[in-house]
Design a protein around this nucleic acid. Structure first.
Lengths: 248, 248
DNA sequence: CAGTATAAACCGTGATCACACCTTACGTTA
DNA sequence: TAACGTAAGGTGTGATCACGGTTTATACTG
């Protein structure tokens, strides 16, 4: 009998597959790529609980396909670090990051997203500015009404639009990979007190810096947002110990 | 007839599979993971020519397996950006990075590897110091004798040992992913005049900074090494135009 | 009732096959 | 001789099956 995982879920004990629909395959698109994209987005949106185990046959049954394309999609996600092998056996599950991994991911995000943000102001942002402002407004509305789904969606859209403006595809893919890793946890972190307020402060500063074309200020705002979120994540997953215990 | 790729090869027109041997599968290890590891290392070592097309059935035949595990390994490498789909058809090939992608990768490496190096000096390096020095010596020997294989192997070992000392697994995996992308090109770049000399200068500075425990100097040495290598890569792949360099 | 042995269900893995698509080669025709 | 059309070979894709292993459920025994 191995230690079965029980991890606090945000909702009632729902399966991550409950929101999944059978595939509607179109011409020229492989089933595998659709499954990969769907699962990736579901992980980023926090629809799968950390520690939740993923079964090939169950997934194939829900999606209405055979195990073959599912297997490839899951293997791909495993390669991204979005899924991990559980024990000595070969069961795939949604990762539960260790404390060290969370600070690792936080510092990587600070480097990559800070760099991407600084690069973004060197390009022309005006064409994207309307979309970014729109995402900010929707995020503010969601924050006021407590709509977690709407908040998370526009939070990602807000950041993604800025990083996309940097015009660096490889960099963007690495940033997305980090978001997929923390995706399953974010939904648990946003319920932290003052999370919305602090986060929206950073976002407003970022928006102002973007309008002013101030790269350093934008980077600082992004870094603050990442750091605050990382603190909430650490506290949610590994109790109230602060990661850096350098009590001088 | 679609535009078949012909890319300059370092050696005689050899297949990337010529160095591959049939799998010897052991207990508890999947064939897929062995294939993935073998192909990954072969790509990092530059055994596959940029633009070389990878066939599922040919790979399965060489490795002595069926297409199933090969397919998963290739899909994983595609997810890593180590392979890409060629045209409208679904042929996988070793990527030929565009000029923009190369500067993208260069700047990501500057950020991630510079950060990892700086973090490494905060840990205790002495236990690893002997291995690092050994890799440096072997690299110097390879540089003198012009042994490209030996040089590339110990070049990676040298960098890898430093980054490994940072104690950050996620960061290390991202760095490795970048090395896999440039792996097929490096063998073409080291033949550039003065490449060995410039690179070994940087490595010596890095080693001195490591011994002195100087994080800033180490980072500077690593950044210089990356920048120099990126210049040689750009010239090799996309002629002599130097990319715009804006520092982080 | 507790503990254990046995059987059923489920897991991922890898091999094999049919399918649709594309490229290439060869033979036929104008 | 040149152009066209057809056939053969090769491609990735996805479904299905057999296998070894583990987990879970059931029934039997003390």
């Amino acid at each position: 009998m191995s230690e079965r995982n029980t991890y606090p879920t945000h909702d009632h004990e729902t399966d991550g597959w409950s929101r999944m629909r059978p595939l509607t395959l179109q011409e020229g698109v492989t089933a595998q790529s659709l499954i990969y994209a769907a699962l990736r987005e579901a992980l980023m949106s926090g629809y799968f609980r950390p520690g939740e185990e993923i079964s090939l046959r169950k997934a194939a049954h829900v999606l209405g396909t055979s195990v073959t394309p599912v297997r490839e999609a899951l293997r791909q996600l495993q390669s991204d670090g979005a899924l991990e092998v559980f024990g000595g056996n070969r069961v795939l599950r949604v990762p539960i990051p260790t404390e060290a991994e969370l600070t690792d991911i936080r510092d990587i995000r600070v480097n990559l997203e800070g760099f991407a943000a600084a690069q973004a102001v060197n390009q022309d942002i005006p064409p994207q500015m309307r979309l970014i402002t729109n995402a900010y407004d929707l995020m503010q509305r969601a924050s006021d009404s407590g709509d977690v789904d709407m908040y998370l969606e526009n939070n990602w859209r807000f950041h993604s639009l800025i990083y996309h403006a940097a015009g660096r595809p490889v960099l963007l893919s690495l940033i997305e990979a980090m978001w997929v890793r923390v995706g399953p946890l974010i939904r648990l972190a946003v319920t932290k007190p003052l999370h919305f307020d602090r986060s929206m402060d950073s976002h407003r500063w970022a928006l102002d810096a973007l309008r002013a074309g101030n790269a350093d200020a934008l980077r600082a705002a992004i870094v603050r947002d990442i750091t605050d979120a990382a603190n909430d994540l650490q506290q949610t997953v590994h109790g109230w110990k602060t990661p850096q215990s350098h009590t001088a």
